[in-house]
């Protein structure tokens, strides 16, 4: 096995083009587990932690360009205001030690259906910046997850960054696990309100072969909110709307029975998470519109 330590992104891309089988390693919190347990024996590791370009985030128009190598710890500490749902999801990842190392880029690279960043990236409309010596491809999160632990990257591509829209409106993430710390999601859900476009983003994790959007639920809620002029003059949502939204989210899942939970439980829990996060988000939206007393 070779250990490749590129110092720049350009160097990393040249190496990846030359050796598409080289496995990128960032925080190592997925890759090292596979190596330690002999589940993977790549002929080369491509260490990305020496590349300064991947380690930072910046504000770009309407979004945060989050470098693939920014660890969860910094998303939590530095981006809670701009990207509230991604920060919430990041707080729920593993343990402090895992959050100090693990990255959103690595979550995308692993593309596990249970990855906590994914529902947020889908609901907010994030776009993955994939780079290679051939150029840059901007891949919407919606098109990024192809199958269980399979993503849309070509063998010579690396993730440089993910562009996460700053919606300036309420967004929420919630996850069900068997305890409060160090849990892989039994199921997870994110909602993002997009008042500027009259849209709603809703996406689920750990309840289908890939993270996925609940598009029928998104359209239903956007129609309800649009028809009632709710974006302009928000009022509390009727129970029927909240319940239907939860049902449509649950219907979007294709869960399986596994050690973490049954399919039926996952569907039920998703409908609860959907309703609950909608309530939080909507309270945030109505509260913001209310004039100060």
């Amino acid at each position: 096995m070779d250990f490749l330590r590129p110092a720049t992104l350009a160097e990393a891309l040249a190496l990846k083009a030359e050796r598409p089988g080289a496995v990128p390693i960032a925080g190592g919190t997925d890759v090292m587990v596979e190596l330690n347990f002999d589940h993977r024996r790549p002929d080369a590791l491509l260490d990305l932690t020496g590349i300064a370009e991947l380690r930072d985030w910046s504000a770009v128009p309407g979004a945060v360009r989050l470098g693939a190598g920014v660890p969860y710890r910094r998303v939590i500490d530095e981006l809670g205001g701009r990207l509230p749902a991604l920060a919430t999801a990041s707080r729920s990842v593993g343990s402090p030690q895992i959050r100090n190392r693990g990255t959103v880029g690595g979550n995308l690279g692993a593309a596990s259906p249970a990855g906590d960043a994914h529902p947020v990236l889908l609901a907010t409309g994030a776009v993955v910046e994939a780079v290679s010596t051939r150029g840059t491809r901007m891949i919407p999160a919606t098109d990024f997850y192809l199958g269980v632990k399979r993503n849309a990257l070509a063998p010579d591509e690396l993730i440089a960054a993910v562009h996460v829209p700053e919606t300036g409106a309420p967004q929420q993430f919630a996850k069900v696990g068997t305890r409060n710390a160090m849990v892989i999601a039994v199921c997870s859900f994110a909602i993002a309100l997009h008042p500027a476009t009259g849209r709603v983003g809703a996406a689920l994790g750990s309840a289908a072969p890939t993270p996925r959007r609940a598009t029928a639920a998104e359209d239903f809620l956007a129609d309800e909110l649009g028809a009632g002029d709710q974006w302009e003059s928000p009022t509390p949502l009727p129970d029927s709307t909240r319940r239907r939204f939860g049902e449509l989210v649950a219907a979007a899942a294709s869960p399986v029975d596994d050690v973490r939970g049954t399919a039926a439980y996952r569907r039920h829990a998703l409908s609860v998470l959907a309703r609950r996060t909608l309530d939080w988000a909507w309270q945030g939206y109505t509260g913001r519109g209310r004039p100060c007393a």
Partner: peptide, 15 residues
């Protein structure tokens, strides 16, 4: 200066 699990850091990453 940052606490990490040493089992998940590749030796070469500590160079």
């Amino acid at each position: 200066g940052v606490p990490v699990c040493a089992c998940l850091v590749a030796a070469g990453q500590a160079e």
